[in-house]
Design a binder for these strands. Structure first.
Lengths: 347, 347
DNA sequence: TTGAAAGCGCTAACAG
DNA sequence: CTGTTAGCGCTTTCAA
């Protein structure tokens, strides 16, 4: 029997294709829009009708098509999220807080990682926007004019997270990294230290770490002190990098420091390991201070002196404000999340 | 001048609303479909025409609407990703590998975190499917029948990641956790240890850790040895939990162990800290072994004996196979990623 | 190489 | 309370 295209009755899709709202409606004996209202619990639908529709949906294993729904005018429940990195637990924590809050309201993050690359960030921004998300959460790498333009023209709620030092187009949730650096300077000065060094990681990419360094310098200056050696090693921050870095810093230092401020806890823990291996007494011979308040630092035999940065909370608050705004509210434009200095025992 | 609804020429949307393909087409003096083809570089379009369309798109700051595109039949470039947790760096690493590979092909993950909750996992599965993603990557918490059914009926490529011990509906990429446990048992036995203990975290939720424990038991049995005390503390694995846990394990142990196998490196590092604080010589008095090969463990004064689990690589391979399949290829159903035992100095 | 027509699956607006 | 009509912005046929 020859096969005439267009004449086939055996449409292969009929079974394979996912059930549509129209099929659910037919099965329930109502119109499409009634089925729609019933399933969304929107508008007036007789209790009996609703139950019939719900049963039909379950029987057919119906999963709504939100692409169609959103295109037709329903609010999107996707949120674009752009982070500079995931190799550091810091951003994983933020994402965790974000996701948790978003999911509570049925929203889901579409993720993009910029690797601290402004051009990649631009491309990500366009890509994510093409999905017409309800809003955007972004931890900017370093904003280019294009990025700024895209954000300004985005015409949707945008939360910039992590720091509140830079100006933002819409909302901002984070801490003052400059302030954190200053706080640590004042604390260490108050403990009686006078000769300081700084050990950091790929500073060219992580401008928030740079802000902490600047704040640290400013803080020292405010109490009449100065920062000595500054060593910044290329690449992302890791424990091994901190360990090797401190060895090198001490070897090269013009004047031996009494206290070292690290770009973050990963680096500082590495520093602690170096001291242990090299027989340097902490904090008697050398004081160490980090940033972030990671649990690893607090589990050290001597808990690390550091600053807790409430990363999950930042994500949570960012999501909360975004959802608030989507619901018609007016959340604050800038939310300065408190940081907390943890005295520890290494300084 | 009175205002007649329907007669207004001042459609407020005209400026606010994002430009559409039709506007780009009009600006370029071509039909919608030609503009579509030009921008997607699909089908025959005169070079000159294409350039005109591209200029119009840039001038209007056009960002395509993929909701519409996908609904109309273009392949989706979203991939649903479900992970059990993000508070552990392990899954952040996997996600990092995934995202990196996906983004290379213009795909983006929509994220869901199940918190090791099978019901939440089910809900996530439905939610993400409602966005009609091109594929799914999932690190199952513990598969329920519903989950199994949803995955089987999903009718789209699914990669189950992290372990290859359980059977999977479609593709699987991971390591054999049972095998990893066995390998560690054989290694420790070969080093001459005879009395073993295990220290784990919330085992009821993390079935992969359980598989490592089972494999460890089996491995010991294979060489005529047995596992002594097993202590599993509730909650996620952290360094502090490992530290406190080891103290408790040693205090409660019926016979003091010569070697302790931890559920992972976080816990093991905590154990190392306890030993240091308690003056226990490692590995002379007590040998320690972990799992994952985290950099923190390798930066310890005595590098941790552990097993490297290639997490980023798992994510990368999972994405690669998914993309391969979407491109019409036939990637392997099961990919057993090698793990590697790192001898370290703690055992 | 270009275009016209049709429709993806859903929801808003307006009627009944 | 329910239904009809008309799109959303794009891509897939099919035709020129």
């Amino acid at each position: 029997m020859p096969h005439f295209p267009g004449m086939d009755d055996d449409r292969p899709d009929t079974q394979t294709r996912r059930p549509t709202l129209s099929q659910v409606a037919r099965a329930a004996g109502v119109s499409e829009i009634t089925a729609s209202r019933a399933l969304r619990r929107d508008g007036p639908v007789a209790r009996d009708t609703r139950e019939r529709v719900e049963r039909a949906a379950i029987a057919l294993n119906y999963v709504p098509n939100r692409l169609a729904g959103t295109l037709a005018g329903a609010a999107s429940r996707q949120v674009g999220v752009i982070l500079p990195s995931l190799s550091n637990i810091v951003f994983a924590d933020v994402l965790n807080g974000l996701e948790d809050r978003l999911e509570g309201d049925g929203y889901h993050p579409i993720l993009g990682i910029s690797n601290y690359d402004p051009l990649r960030e631009e491309r990500l921004l366009r890509d994510l926007m093409s999905w017409r998300p309800a809003g955007l959460v972004i931890a900017p790498a370093r904003k280019t004019d294009v990025t700024r333009g895209l954000l300004a023209a985005a015409d949707l709620p945008v939360v910039e997270i992590m720091d509140v030092d830079a100006e933002s187009a819409d909302m901002a949730v984070g801490i003052s990294h400059r302030g954190a650096g200053r706080a640590m300077a004042h604390y260490l000065a108050g403990r009686g230290y006078r000769r300081f060094a700084y050990l950091g990681h790929g500073i060219e990419t992580d401008f928030r770490a740079t802000q902490r360094l600047n704040g640290f310098r400013d803080g020292l200056r405010e109490v009449g002190l100065t920062l000595g050696d500054v060593l910044c090693l290329p690449g992302p921050s890791t424990v091994p990098l901190g360990r090797e870095g401190l060895a090198r810093l001490l070897a090269e230092a013009k004047t031996p420091p009494e206290a070292v401020f690290f770009s973050n806890d990963d680096m500082a823990v590495g520093g602690a390991f170096h001291c242990q291996a090299a027989g340097i007494a902490v904090p008697e011979d050398l004081a160490l201070a980090g940033f972030n308040g990671l649990s690893i630092g607090q589990a050290l035999p001597k808990p690390l002196t550091t600053i807790a940065s409430q990363r999950e909370h930042i994500g949570f608050i960012a999501a909360t404000h975004l959802l608030d705004r989507l619901a018609g509210g007016s959340p604050p434009r800038v939310t300065n999340v408190d940081f907390r200095l943890i005295p520890g025992a290494t300084a």
